[in-house]
């Protein structure tokens, strides 16, 4: 198999991981207009929670159990964040800016708490599927296949949820016309609350995978956030399709840059791509608002 095909396949794997990392950020941004600067830290927090559970209470149990336990915990954390630090600010002037400052501050609180509790040493969660597999001539790990599968399942599940369920429809309705939502009886505060819960639960899924690919570090959330941030802006306000397309563009670009120039050049190329696309489409690839 040619090096180009290998590189493309690698890019799709990376893109899949980015989809998982960015979906939660995109949903909150789309529904509530809040760019949650603590999203990366929430992913890292989830990874630590997953690591802690898997090496203590859940030790010896099969790792996929983490997918059943960690997301609901983080769902609750997400709802608490919305209720505790964001709702009091909503309806105040400069809400979008204050939300950025508050979530940024919250990210620092999470990072430093992780540092205090778990120390600076890197931790890791063992991969769930360690065996090397060969599909259509591509050699990869079971874990990577799993990530692609989960990314696809999340995207399909979310699109179905947003188009076909009452709650999903409400989540789309609230940002389109909040007064309209009010007069049909949609409780927008509750919708925001659930959206944050859902976003944090998606961060949990990302965290479990991140912990099995990279070493966990208290500051590691920033790298994840920056990537998710670029993807969400490139995608256009809250667009799921946009997240998928942007993740694959940047994943494949990353893979090509790594192959040709080395990993130091990844971020410069990302930003060139970002600026180029945004100068042509200022609202992002699929942005409408």
């Amino acid at each position: 198999m040619g090096a180009i095909a290998e590189t493309l396949f690698g890019g799709i794997t990376i893109g899949s991981a980015y989809i998982i990392v960015a979906l939660g950020l995109a949903i909150v941004y789309g529904v509530s207009d809040v760019m949650n600067f603590s999203h990366g830290s929430l992913i890292m927090l989830s990874a630590y929670v997953a690591w802690f559970l898997s090496s203590t209470v859940l030790a010896g149990l099969p790792l996929p159990i983490l997918f059943i336990i960690v997301p609901p915990i983080m769902f609750g954390v997400g709802m608490l964040i919305e209720r505790g630090i964001l709702r009091p600010l909503r309806r105040q002037p400069n809400w979008a800016t204050t939300a950025i400052v508050v979530t940024l501050g919250f990210a620092l609180v999470i990072n430093n708490s992780l540092l205090v509790i778990f120390g600076p040493l890197g931790r890791y969660i063992p991969p769930m599927l360690e065996q090397v597999v060969t599909i259509g001539g591509f050699t990869t790990t079971g874990n990577r296949i799993l990530i692609m599968g989960v990314a696809a399942a999340l995207v399909v599940g979310l699109v179905f949820f947003l188009k076909k369920t009452r709650l999903g429809l409400s989540m789309r309705a609230v940002p389109q016309d909040i007064v309209g939502a009010n007069i049909v009886g949609i409780p927008s505060d509750r919708i925001f609350n659930i959206t944050f819960g859902l976003s944090a639960a998606l961060a949990a899924i990302g965290g479990i995978f991140m912990g099995s690919i990279y070493l966990l570090a208290p500051e590691g959330g920033w790298t994840l956030f920056i990537r998710a941030f670029v993807i969400v802006l490139l995608a256009g306000a809250g667009s799921i399709t946009g997240v998928v397309v942007a993740s694959f563009i940047l994943g494949i670009l990353e893979s090509i840059v790594q192959w040709q120039f080395g990993s130091l050049w990844i971020m410069p190329f990302w930003f060139v791509a970002f600026l180029t696309i945004m100068s042509v489409r200022p609202r992002g690839l699929f942005g409408i608002r």
Partner: peptide, 14 residues
């Protein structure tokens, strides 16, 4: 105060 980017059916359902 309709939901502009949702379909007629989705608006009615809501």
């Amino acid at each position: 105060h309709l939901f502009p980017q949702m379909t007629v059916l989705e608006n009615l359902k809501l």
